[in-house]
């Protein structure tokens, strides 16, 4: 039996043996956590709108984002967010809170390597791919749109 065949049989066997995460519970938890975070954001938006009824929808949205980000970073600093994430899984990191947590947790963790090569360089260890890809995609969309609008 050659190595490749042996390895693929072994992988199949391991796959069958490995305990499955209780996927229904995980989905339900992600659903509840994700829904709760979004409702919390909606609530902040409604409160802001009730104080400043003339504010346009984009500015309200920006305020909502900033509030959720700020709260996430504070929870991360107090060491609470990772407990929420353990419960919520994708429910906590798919909303903007996950982005904020990944930046804050890296900043806190890697400050021991100094402000330049620690915080400065490693802050984007997890969030970097999101920013890099996001900027790249937006440029692609923008340039395509620009070229189309020329004709």
């Amino acid at each position: 039996m050659n190595k490749q065949q042996r390895n693929s049989e072994y992988l199949m066997y391991v796959e069958n043996q490995s305990p499955k995460s209780a996927w229904f519970t995980s989905l339900l938890r992600a659903f509840i956590m994700g829904g709760t975070i979004c409702c919390f954001g909606q609530m902040i938006g409604d409160v802001i709108k009730s104080f400043f009824p003339t504010m346009d929808i984009l500015t309200v949205g920006a305020w909502v984002n900033i509030s959720v980000i700020t709260l996430t970073i504070l929870l991360t600093a107090f060491g609470v967010f990772d407990l929420l994430a353990k419960y919520g899984g994708a429910g906590t990191f798919i909303p903007i809170s996950g982005f904020a947590n990944s930046i804050a947790s890296c900043a806190i963790e890697y400050k021991k390597e100094g402000l330049v090569f620690g915080v400065g360089a490693k802050m984007f260890y997890v969030a970097g791919p999101v920013l890099v890809n996001g900027v790249a995609y937006s440029m692609i969309v923008g340039i395509i749109y620009f070229i189309i609008s020329l004709f």
């Binding site: 490995s18 305990p19 499955k20 995460s21 995980s26 991360t76 600093a77 060491g79 967010f81 990772d82 929420l84 994430a85 353990k86 919520g88 899984g89 906590t92 990191f93 996950g98 947590n101 990944s102 804050a104 947790s105 890296c106 806190i108 963790e109 890697y110 260890y125 997890v126």
Partner: peptide
């Protein structure tokens, strides 16, 4: 954890295995 995986405060779930 900080060498092999993620920062301690990073919120992720551990796999069942």
């Amino acid at each position: 954890e900080r060498q092999y995986r993620y920062p301690l405060e990073f919120g992720n779930q551990r796999q069942a295995y």
